[in-house]
Design a binder for these strands. Structure first.
Length: 563
RNA sequence: UGGGGCGUAGCCAAGCGGCAAGGCAGGGGCCUUUGGAGCCUCCAUUCGUAGGUUCGAAUCCUACCGCCCCAGCCA
């Protein structure tokens, strides 16, 4: 046993290194993390990275991860989002147990700490308007100038702040600011606003409050209340860390959490911005937050991506501090990898072409045994009816087929998967020259898909018995954005939307076993891809979403030939 | 021209002074009742650039270049 090599399955990244070192050196007695979404939108794949990180670290170090809603801005937050977020985190496979918290649970304590700061001469009520405060803040290169209200007495500040709470003042007329340093190079130190007046009902506290703490004043203190040891957030909060620490240092908080930042996830052909996602929904570019094209967890769930694939993806991409854009193909790989192992195989024909087996007895039906998943023999077999008239995929026949086309063509023999070898003998066309039917013969000795003489057709096709096939609607999805970097080079993001991201096929067929599919379960349609029954399915009228295609080297060959 | 970060292959990412992990993508081959899957194999003499320290540098020092974030009473 090589004692120098750690097991490769052990996850490692700079945050886990810090956690391990803190534990080893006794800086912390245990690990406590939290996932802190703001309930102002749906969770997306970028949040999944954070969820996997926070819950993952907690479980690896026998610690705990709280789910805490950062609900400090009632003008943007809604109950619908609260509910969806909880469902999404559970779906992803994580559980916070009893530890569901809200920043709003701490409003009273936060208020007391604001009063404490005032008492220390470290916070003051400012009567300046928002515009005036901005003007006083200075710029990136010039220091700010102090507010004329900066040096009010503690008594006056206490009185004013109390009256802010009771609702005596209108929105925007006054704020409470921390008194730090208007000349700091870090703009977050230029007397940040820590309380604002908002006469808005809060989803949880109703109209109990008309003043609300800002993120900076709420987040670190909430962490301290919960005993969070490692407060993990994204890079854009780096500049806030000194302020985070300032509050922890200047308030009588019960613990001293520390903040660590990592690079947020970016994905090609995708936008992960709540603002843009909201607009895609509100302006009708997609059908809703759970549209299968959306990068939201509810969207990819409806699309058929398994949670395990998302978790694998999170492990695959790692955690670092460098800005990066992950190719969406990596996500798709993780999803295919899981689905290949777990998805049951089924037959479906998206674009049907009729085939008549001339030497197969009319009215006869044979039940063919078909494997549910060749990757998993324990999944067993199922019966699929075979008869004289079949559907095959239109793309699986070519009248003038090149040598490399390993499918059906006049005179060529192919295998119908788990059924028989058939040979095309005649092409039937309508008045306009369109192929409407194929006449074939079958070899009765090849039942099950293999020949006694060992001959092996180059191609194997999927098929359906026309009399038994179940009509289905199948929705094909592709990347929502055509450009790998939507909105780059000054383009309007919305001009980069892929016009072909959704196409609905209404004249498809699936095998009888799929007549009443379980919604949310992803199966593989052999040779086509992975598909997931949509909630829009009705009894006997199933609707499937294409999760992902199978890798298609034939398509690649064709593309190379064309170019 | 202020402050904070980051630069290792097409993409993600290990590496922490001893001679460039791994994954994705891609190439070649084998195998195959899914042109799927699987298996084998190739893919950075070089770590943003230039100097310096050292027997030895992606790792240390210096300078430069490039990219990202910050001027909400958003988070």
């Amino acid at each position: 046993m090589d004692t120098h090599t750690a097991p490769t399955s052990e996850k490692s990244d700079f945050i886990r290194d810090i956690v391990a070192a803190d534990l080893r050196d006794g800086r912390v007695g245990g690990v406590m993390t939290r996932f802190p979404p703001e309930p102002n939108g749906y969770l997306h794949i970028g949040h999944a990275k954070s969820i996997c990180l926070n819950f993952g670290i907690a479980s690896e170090y026998s610690g705990r991860c709280n789910l805490r809603f950062d609900d400090t801005n009632p003008v943007k937050e809604e109950q619908e989002y609260l509910d969806a977020i909880k469902a999404d985190v559970h779906w992803l496979g994580f559980d916070w147990g009893e530890h569901l918290y809200y920043a709003s649970d701490y409003f009273e304590q936060l208020y007391d700490w604001a009063v404490y700061l005032i008492g220390q001469g470290k916070a003051y009520v400012d009567d300046l308007s928002a515009d005036e405060i901005r003007e006083h803040r200075g710029t990136l290169t010039e220091p700010g100038v102090e507010s004329p209200w900066r040096n009010r007495s503690a008594e006056e500040n206490l009185d004013l702040f109390a009256r802010m709470r009771t609702g005596e003042f209108s929105d925007g007329s006054r704020v409470l600011r921390a008194k730090i340093d208007m000349a700091s190079g870090n703009i977050n130190f230029r007397d940040p606003v820590i309380y604002r007046i908002l006469h808005v009902a809060h989803p949880r506290t109703g109209d109990a409050w008309c003043i609300y703490p800002s993120y900076d004043f709420a987040h670190g203190q909430s962490d301290a209340i919960e005993g969070i040891t490692h407060s993990i957030c994204t890079l854009e909060f780096q500049d806030h860390r000194p302020l985070y620490d300032w509050f922890i240092d200047n308030l009588p908080v019960p613990s001293t959490p520390h903040q660590y930042e990592f690079a947020r996830l970016n994905l090609t052909h995708t936008v992960l911005s709540k603002r843009v996602l909201l607009r895609l929904v509100n302006d009708g570019y997609v059908h809703g937050w759970d549209d299968p094209r959306m990068p939201t967890l509810s969207g990819i769930r409806r699309r058929g991506f398994p949670a395990e694939g998302i978790r694998d993806f999170a492990d695959m991409i790692g955690v670092a501090r460098a800005d990066s854009v992950v190719e969406v193909g990596m996500l798709e790989h993780a999803v295919r990898d899981v689905l290949n192992r777990t998805a049951s195989r089924r037959f479906a024909v998206l674009n049907p072409l009729k085939v008549v087996i001339e030497n197969f007895p009319e009215g006869q039906v044979e039940e063919m045994d078909v494997m549910n998943n060749p990757e998993d023999p324990s999944s067993g077999t199922r019966k699929v009816p075979f008869s004289r008239e079949l559907w095959i995929e239109r793309e699986d026949f070519m009248e003038d087929a090149p040598k490399k086309f390993f499918r059906l063509a006049p005179g060529r023999e192919v295998r119908l998967r788990s059924a028989y070898f058939v040979t095309c003998t005649e092409v039937v066309k309508d008045g306009s020259g369109e192929i409407v039917e194929l006449r074939c013969t079958y070899d009765p000795a090849t039942r099950g898909g293999s020949a006694p003489d060992e001959r092996r057709p180059k191609g194997t096709l999927h098929w359906l018995s026309a009399a038994h096939a179940v009509p289905a609607e199948i929705r094909l999805y592709d990347h929502l954005f055509a450009s790998p970097f939507p909105g780059s080079d000054g383009r309007d993001l919305f001009d980069d939307l892929n016009p072909d991201s959704e196409s609905v096929l209404s004249e498809c067929f699936v095998e009888p076993a799929l007549e009443n599919p379980v919604v949310g379960v992803t199966v593989q349609f052999e040779r086509l891809g992975y598909f997931c029954a949509d909630p829009d399915s009705a009894s006997g009228a199933p609707v499937f979403n294409r999760t992902l295609t199978l890798k298609d080297t034939w398509a690649k060959v064709q593309a190379q030939a064309t170019s």
